[in-house]
């Protein structure tokens, strides 16, 4: 057994999985609260990356150093994407809250196509280079052939975000309100929870995470275009279902399992079947645990 090779594949799977997880968190939170699959989520991820690129380009012209560009561009992307998330909910989902469940789903797909085309027309249909905003840390240089600095940042960010979210939902007021809304919207409203605010908040947090994912992935991959949100969204959605949609640790676990499966499948068998491994795993898990790995069938969400 070649342990170094194993480690390399593990870390590459971990990186990929962390990206899936960051995006999956947004899916799972929204689903947990209003049982809606927000298909426009992948597009917000893409918009986050584009905002990051635009802001980073402007700041580079102003001559700032890489780290402050990264932070400022991320801030801008988070705020901009969160605004998008907020607006998407108000325009596409809120008017349909009482409608049959199929209607908001169609509305979500429509939103996704709209945003994709809007970015394609307003920005470009070309591939754009994305600057590597995450610097190569010096202390990482000896390990650069195994794991790069951007990968390390991605993995660490996902962990921090997951801990932050768990604390937010378990221990804060808004977290309590979220859990209440998830359990029973009507009842939560009766006891004085402003559910509109809670739902908006959920969208804002979820889309902010997507923006973080968008920027980090773009730094790692080095290029973006208007279509990146589609595949990322699809994989992240798979991860969310795999881990148990509605569950926060589930989304992270699902993302990691998916990423690792793809990586090991590629490394030890063949990359021709990368997607086949991922979706075979999804089917197998859903056969034996229909609610996903950590999903607890509808009794508790978020």
């Amino acid at each position: 057994m070649d342990w170094l090779y194993f480690l390399e594949l593990f870390l590459s799977g971990l990186t990929k999985g962390s990206i899936y997880a960051l995006i999956a968190l947004g899916y799972t939170m929204v689903y947990g609260i209003i049982q809606l699959i927000n298909f426009a989520h992948g597009e917000v991820y893409m918009i986050g990356a584009f905002t990051g690129l635009i802001v980073a380009s402007i700041l580079t012209l102003l001559g700032l150093n890489t780290l402050s560009i990264l932070l400022l561009a991320s801030m801008a992307a988070i705020i901009y994407s969160a605004a998008y998330g907020f607006t998407i909910e108000k325009i596409a989902y809120k008017p349909l809250r009482q409608a049959p469940r199929l209607s908001p789903l169609i509305s979500a797909i429509g939103m996704s196509i709209f945003l994709q085309n809007y970015v394609m027309i307003a920005q470009t249909s070309d591939f754009m280079p994305f600057p590597s905003l995450i610097p190569d840390f010096e202390f990482m240089e000896p390990y650069a052939h195994i794991i790069g600095s951007p990968e390390l940042v991605i993995i660490l960010t996902t962990m921090v975000v997951m801990i932050f979210l768990t604390v937010l939902i378990k221990f804060t007021r808004i977290g309590k309100a979220m859990r209440a809304t998830a359990q029973d919207k009507g009842m939560a409203m009766l006891v004085g929870v402003n559910i509109d605010r809670v739902i908006s908040m959920t969208f804002i947090i979820g889309t902010a995470l997507a923006a973080v994912g968008g920027i980090l992935t773009a730094c790692h991959v080095g290029q973006i275009n208007f279509y990146i949100g589609f595949l990322a969204g699809l994989k992240a959605f798979t991860a969310a279902v795999l881990g148990g949609i509605g569950s926060i640790p589930g989304a992270v676990l699902g993302g990691l399992v998916l990423g690792l499966t793809e990586s090991f499948g590629t490394g030890y068998i063949s990359s021709d079947y990368e997607d086949v491994f991922a979706f075979t795993l999804l089917i197998l898990i859903l056969i034996f645990r229909p609610a996903g790995i950590l999903g607890r069938s509808t009794t508790q969400k978020v």
């Binding site: 090779y5 990206i19 790692h220 991959v221 990146i228 990322a232 793809e262 490394g267 021709d272 997607d275």
Partner: peptide, 20 residues
């Protein structure tokens, strides 16, 4: 001799394989 998934965000596993 390998095929990769077009549009993927990360090809590091294939890259590791090339290296190996």
């Amino acid at each position: 001799y390998e095929g990769i998934t077009p549009g993927g965000m990360d090809y590091s596993a294939v890259v590791q394989k090339v290296k190996r």
